[in-house]
Design a binder for these strands. Structure first.
Lengths: 264, 264
DNA sequence: GCTTGACCTTGACGCAACGTCAACCCCGCA
DNA sequence: TGCGGGGTTGACGTTGCGTCAAGGTCAAGC
């Protein structure tokens, strides 16, 4: 009676969809006419319309069979379950919207507000962008690892920004970043400041806190590799500073440690 | 530094996901160690975390690259567009919920309330279930074809149910359906009633209306094939009734027509 | 040195619901 | 007889991975 195109037109679907329903056994394959065309009749149209009615209500095709054959109770139960699934999907998408709205509102990717505030303040103090980027990446790592302690860390860091030594350090770093090639005396000054900060930290116990915050050494090594990703120029400068610090009896930048006199 | 499993753990994803990101070029393939294992460092972890942050906000992976590289304006524009898409998807799902709620509320599949009311009334008048099923299927077809006229048709049909002839017809059909084998006198009575109804319809012009409602004959034929799907017993009874009607000068059940005297 | 278990490698299929070629056949019409 | 608009099967693409399969590798305990 009807070709596949006519059948599809009756139900307002594509021929591809009809063939798909045949493929998954949802609509029985009809007889073929002499030339091999599928030949449909009224009941096929009716079944196809029923299928579409369910599909357009969000019923997965895999459950349409079952629903078409179900009695009233089974139907109601299945419908209730499908509605539950729909509600869940809507909730998920709304959660997506919430997150993307936060991103649009200026939240830096993958960092809590306390951290972005800290980074903004660093920038305001003249810290070169490349250093801020490194800090950000490091804090992304830390925030992913210890999300519940990140605010505590940031409070610490913010107060450090009030330390005149830290200010001096940032200023020196800014000068070095701005210059073509860093002068040796600038690097030496940085090393001096860093060592002075380390000594102060050793006295007030901050060095022990850093051990507690970086429990396994592998995580500290991981943070090091972030620092090493800043490009060859920065790595050279960094290496030189480490060298100068070593001459002054200290090692490490991520995790500062006094060099054992026996080694020296 | 890190194996793929460790990298994945840092970002809270599966190794499969990481390999997928490599495959689609979202995360660069890292160096391999001597045994061919992928070896990751800090920047890889950071990038993976950024990817996840966007993905979990509903950004399609295909757009994550672009967003990670975008400046603030481009980022805002892309985010706005993604939010628009999310809103659309939510609306679609809500539409699904509306439809499925209607189905749960007892709406027969693919039929408007006027039609289900008519079918219910038919059933209440003792019409056998198999007949009601055929009517329903026929009206599903018609409703799909002419949705805007279905209420008008149903009003007509409802008023026909008040016709004593129609009542008699339904009672006779009920008796026939209940019996093992229909008696010839029952079938003759049905034919008599149908012919009487047809004659009345011819007088008040209802026959012309039916021509208008069934514009092309192919649609009428399609409706016939629905009637033929009721099983061999019903088809035999139907054929016999058509035969008896023909003896009385009428043809057709879906679309009744007086037989041309020249043919008889 | 051997086994064991956990982790790594590539390759490939599966899911949901079709869209979209490709290559070929069939029908009605000028 | 050619043409345009159907139909036919087959297979790949979409989205974001999950889940085998069939191995090679590593660290640890015996």
């Amino acid at each position: 009676m009807l070709t596949i195109g006519q059948l599809a037109a009756y139900a307002g679907v594509t021929t591809r969809a009809v063939r798909h329903y045949h493929h998954i056994g949802l609509l029985p394959e009809p007889e073929r006419d002499v030339s091999g065309y599928r030949s449909y009749a009224g009941p096929d149209v009716v079944r196809l319309i029923r299928i579409r009615t369910l599909a357009e209500a969000g019923v997965p095709l895999a459950r349409v069979q079952e629903l078409l054959a179900a009695d009233d109770d089974a139907f109601a139960a299945a419908v209730a379950e499908i509605d539950r699934r729909l509600r869940e999907e809507i909730k998920e998408l709304q959660e997506h919207r919430r997150r993307i709205a936060k991103l649009a509102a200026g939240d830096s990717l993958a960092l809590p507000p306390s951290a972005t505030a800290y980074l903004d303040r660093m920038r305001a103090l003249g810290t070169p962008e490349v250093m801020v980027d490194l800090e950000r990446d490091a804090w992304i790592l830390i925030a992913a690892q210890m999300p519940e302690r990140i605010d505590e860390f940031m409070a610490d860091k913010e107060s450090q920004l009030d330390d005149p030594l830290m200010r001096q350090f940032l200023r020196l770093i800014g000068e070095i970043a701005a210059a073509e090639e860093p002068r040796e005396d600038q690097l030496a000054q940085v090393a001096d400041v860093l060592v002075e900060m380390a000594e102060a930290a050793a006295v007030n116990g901050a060095l022990d806190q850093q051990d507690e915050a970086l429990p396994d050494s592998s995580f500290a090594e991981l943070l090091e590799t972030v620092a090493l990703s800043a490009g060859p120029r920065m790595v050279r400068i960094r290496d030189r500073i480490l060298q100068l610090m070593a001459e002054r009896g200290w090692s490490g930048l991520v995790k500062m440690e006094r060099i054992d006199r026996a080694d020296a």
